Simulated scan of single mutants.
Amino acid sequence: MTATIHRLGRDQAPSLEPMMALVAEDMNSVNAVILDRMQSRIPLIPELAGHLIAGGGKRMRPMLTLASARLLDYSGTRHHKLSAAVEFIHTATLLHDDVVDGSGLRRGRKTANIIWGNSASVLVGDFLFSRSFELMVEDGSLKVLKILSNASAVIAEGEVNQLTAQRRIDTDEEQYLEIIGAKTAALFAAACRIAAVVAERDEKQEQALDAYGRNLGIAFQLVDDALDYESDGATMGKDAGDDFRDGKVTLPVILAYARGSADDRAFWKAAISGHRISDEDLTHATGLLRSTGAIADTLARARHYGQRAIDALGMFGNGKAKAALIEAVEFAIARAY
């Protein structure tokens, strides 16, 4: 599979290991900031925040900030606090998402809303958002503040857009791409772009890193949406079929509905409206997704956006940082195989 996206002859599966090794020292500094800034005199806040922050996440978004800074040969330390701000924004949105979706599992563990309740999860999410803005203000760059605050607003818009599209089988591919471009790709893009700001690079390099992050984010979400039907809870770290039961109209469903027979379309209408959500219905849905090629075509689109992400790095010189950023794209796609 990986040969179709970038290069031939890889002996082993793509991994995030090169990027993790590249930024390991910087990541220690970021983790120290995260640990420090999630503290509060209200014990529930660090307890609940720590449950998610320490819950085995890959820290992909802050790593992208650090790796992008390394790509640009930035030698300062401003990106440490900003990477922590990126992770706090991401964590806050996860806490809020799990409440909205009523999720029971996150990264293979019980979600915070199941353990502490919805109210506490929402409020601690608000706390982490506030901490992220404190870190941005401390950095002192209005441009960084503008990029990250805009991304935060766009993420919220994406989540509301998704909510309005929920249980609506007439959601089209354009709206779907708009949703994932906002709720997932916007933070990937901002995380990469701010590295160019702190490294004082020109607008062209800023835009290139923005394009890399944005296309990677779209590819990442497309794979996630395919895996919701093809994977299991142990692999995904969440309940398999969550999107199906929640009535989320993702690209696999959009394609299968468009290609289905009258009976198939009637099934999808009933399923997305919440009337056909048993395990047997999920099995039937997965069968339809496979027979119509909807899963395969969703992953083909993911490879397309992955290649666009790699192409966006074309202006930068070769080296460990560029190779690690390319392999991060390959890893995002390879999760489906």
Rank of each mutant, 00 (worst) to 15 (best):
M20S: 11
A21P: 01
A21S: 13
L22E: 07
L22V: 11
V23M: 08
V23H: 03
V23I: 10
V23Q: 02
A24R: 15
A24Q: 15
A24H: 13
E25N: 13
E25W: 05
E25Q: 15
E25V: 13
E25D: 15
D26N: 09
M27G: 05
M27S: 05
M27C: 05
N28R: 15
S29P: 01
N31A: 02
N31M: 13
A32S: 14
V33I: 11
I34T: 00
I34C: 00
I34Y: 00
L35S: 10
D36C: 04
D36A: 13
R37H: 13
R37C: 05
R37M: 06
M38Y: 00
M38S: 00
M38P: 00
S40C: 06
S40W: 04
S40P: 01
S40L: 08
S40K: 01
R41L: 12
R41W: 09
R41S: 14
I42N: 11
P43I: 06
P43Y: 09
P43L: 08
P43Q: 08
P43M: 09
L44G: 07
I45Y: 02
P46T: 07
E47S: 09
E47I: 08
E47A: 14
E47K: 15
A49N: 04
G50P: 04
G50A: 06
G50D: 02
H51R: 12
I53R: 03
I53F: 02
I53H: 00
A54Y: 13
G55K: 05
G55Q: 09
G56W: 12
G56T: 10
G56S: 12
G57A: 12
G57R: 07
G57C: 09
G57Y: 06
K58G: 04
K58V: 08
K58Y: 11
R59G: 04
M60C: 10
M60Q: 08
R61P: 05
P62K: 02
P62H: 03
P62T: 05
P62I: 07
M63K: 12
L64C: 04
L64S: 00
L64K: 02
L64V: 07
L64I: 09
L64D: 01
T65W: 06
T65H: 07
T65V: 13
L66P: 01
L66M: 10
L66W: 04
L66D: 01
S68V: 11
S68N: 06
A69P: 03
A69S: 15
A69E: 01
A69N: 04
R70S: 15
R70K: 15
R70L: 12
R70T: 15
